[in-house]
Amino acid sequence: MNVILQYYRSLGTARTLNLRIWRLNSTSADVATTTKGDEEEEFRVLDILKSRQRTKKKVTRRNDVQPDRADRMSIDQKWGNVWPGPKTFHPSSVPLPLRQGYVPKGHVPPGKKANAELMKIPNFLHLTPPVVKAQCEALKQFCTEWPSLLNSEEAIENHYPVETITSDYCHAGPTIRNPLARIATLRVKLSTLNLNKHAQDKFIRLVGERYDEETDLVTITADRCPLRQQNLDYVNYLLTACYHESWNVEDWEHDKTEEDMEYYDWDKNASKKSLVQWHLRATNMPNDLSDMDYVEYDISKIPNGEEYKNAVSSLMNNGESEETLKNYGAAVRKLLGLPEAKI
């Protein structure tokens, strides 16, 4: 250790000695003085254009500007830590050779630095696939398992027949409330409600156009209250009220005659009566039926009676068309035991 130190010391003295020697040998100081004297002796030159004074402006380069962060990034870093959240594009922290901008053919688009276009467009640098995966993993602990019995659409429909539909809105503004979020819709299949024929008919009349025959869905929408919960309550109330009201039978409902019927009910019409009468006469059975007996008469006793009933009902309910008439003709032929129509 001592030896090394001494060695260094000796080196140091040698350097200082050298310097001294150079200092003695140098003539720069003398030269400087002589040139100064020469200038003083010279005639001064009139500088009209002032070319000497026109010095270049100092170009100040800030030395406190750090080099780009992107240049110092290791290739195996975690990108999620560099760009943890949504942020405007910043060129010095994105190690990608990006270019953006329209230029004429043959030119190069502007680079990523000082490029406002890159700052404008929303980026998804915070949502790279590994980050999404990590976030999903973190959220997993808050998730519960899906009930195993609700394994199909039918099962869900069976267990939860009533469906409520509400919308959440995502928008920019100082408040997160959106007035459209108050609208609540309730959807239920009519067949899942416990209704008899009269109640179902009345229910359909009560809900009006909210019932869709094709899908058998009753859709009730409410937007009259300012809050979603109020609308949901109101929608539920409407369904309950309609349901119970449809079970009520008013006195005047018994006065409904055949002319008031909204559809053709074959059982209550003259067609059934004549069919039954014809059937009894054809089979030589005694006919001592009252009007109620005709209505309640079991049509399945008559061969091909069911088909005839359907044909007449569809003809009356759906109107005259080529198909219904054809069906009707075929049903009558079968009923009377006639051969099929030859074309």
């Binding site: 800030r62 406190d64 500007v65 949504p86 405007t88 000082a114 406002a116 700052m119 404008k120 929303p122 995502c170 928008h171 920019a172 503004g173 100082p174 408040t175 997160i176």
Partner: peptide
């Protein structure tokens, strides 16, 4: 400010982006 001021709104958050000259001290 050397560019247009870009204003992006997400939910109730306002992001203001711009390109600025380094003419003043940090």
């Amino acid at each position: 400010v050397c560019s247009e001021v870009i204003i992006k709104r997400q939910f109730n958050h306002i992001r203001v982006a711009a390109i600025v000259r380094r003419a003043v001290s940090p």
